[in-house]
Design a protein around this nucleic acid. Sequence first.
DNA 1: CCGCCAACTTGACGCAGATCAAGTTATACC
DNA 2: GGTATAACTTGATCTGCGTCAAGTTGGCGG
Lengths: 224, 224
Amino acid sequence: MHQHEAEDCVRLVPIFQTLSDADITAIARLVRDQTLKAGDFLFTEGTLADRLYILAHGQAKVTQSTAAGREQLLRVLGPGDFDGEGVLFTKGEHTTTATALTKLSVCTISQHDFQALLKNTPALALNVLNALGRRVVALEAKTTAQAVASVSERLANYLVETAGAIGRESFDLPLKKKDLAQYLGTTPETISRKLASFEAAGLIRQSGRQHIEVLDEDGLALQD
Amino acid sequence: MHQHEAEDCVRLVPIFQTLSDADITAIARLVRDQTLKAGDFLFTEGTLADRLYILAHGQAKVTQSTAAGREQLLRVLGPGDFDGEGVLFTKGEHTTTATALTKLSVCTISQHDFQALLKNTPALALNVLNALGRRVVALEAKTTAQAVASVSERLANYLVETAGAIGRESFDLPLKKKDLAQYLGTTPETISRKLASFEAAGLIRQSGRQHIEVLDEDGLALQD
DNA sequence: CCGCCAACTTGACGCAGATCAAGTTATACC
DNA sequence: GGTATAACTTGATCTGCGTCAAGTTGGCGG
């Protein structure tokens, strides 16, 4: 059972996907897996980063906070996503905190084992390089958007992207408004107001707590 | 001469530094180098990313702009820094623009050659992984600061960090105020005002166009 | 060493969005 | 299925900082 979980984990993750069955089985043996409930921490800022975390099922958020105590949500992890690149440097601390948003299962590999894997499996190193490259590009885009776009723009853009990612114009927000606010670098109050004004403008329809229907994608795209 | 430039380049760069002399000489042969003057572009957003850029001498800025035309300065490249990770993915476009801030020399390697190098030199892949990991951590911090800290905080923090990096409390800003404003996600006017108020508060002293002396690092650290 | 011009400074003003406060749901749990 | 409570909404107010405009200054090219 545990072994199954571990293999699931390994097969699920893009960075391992192109590897041979033999490799995958070998990796699965190095993997430790655990289950967490919503609100639990996968890891916290300032603690020793000595394992790589791979999400098998569920969702988690990765946040960072300033001295002042305010928090920024950097990204949301879904099945197959991984984090903990502190592991790639020789010894370091987590600079972020990861919190379970739902009941979830994660697989972890120790720094030592992962480094050995990288050395012995050149294809894996290339896959990780790719994944990190994408992370850099995504983060650069996020930084730029944060700095130069208004909240309306960021929110509208988020809705369009999310609809696109899910593949339907009618969907449930994957995040509570409080988390969404942290993600977009604003407050829940402002999110509420902006969504209300989008609805008033006929761009979207809201129902229930989390349900959104995008009515006019083009209109959203040109929100100031 | 050119060969010398190329070897300089290769030896200068952290990602190549742990490699053998034989490797370095081999790599130097794959490298093309060129000289640019201030204001020239190394590469621009939207063009095909098919080379890796390594800065040998001088400085360059990496920026990204939105549809609205506003620009964000993401980072400043110094000697030994590299960019162009689009190269790591199979074919893609630059998502950023790099502009020379001074007269500078860069070395470049083609995507094809670099991918081959990565495959044949496992140690290199690990070095690149390390460098990218650091980039991710730095970007995450920048994103958080941008979203959560006031301009005063960001500017004060920048001054302290810069003084630290240079190793003296009295130094020249490495950036024009306009560029600094783009880097910190604000405007030159606001920079001017904040610096004036820091000076009035006895935290710093300004002289000439670019010269700053940090008088009270602790005071700066607790700017709201 | 002088004068020109980009880089910067200073002022006045407006507004997006944060904050504080007081309701109003929805949903999860008994 | 009712009810407790966290999640959200709506309103009123305040403020940091962007914008536009009009000087001022430093430093470099001649």
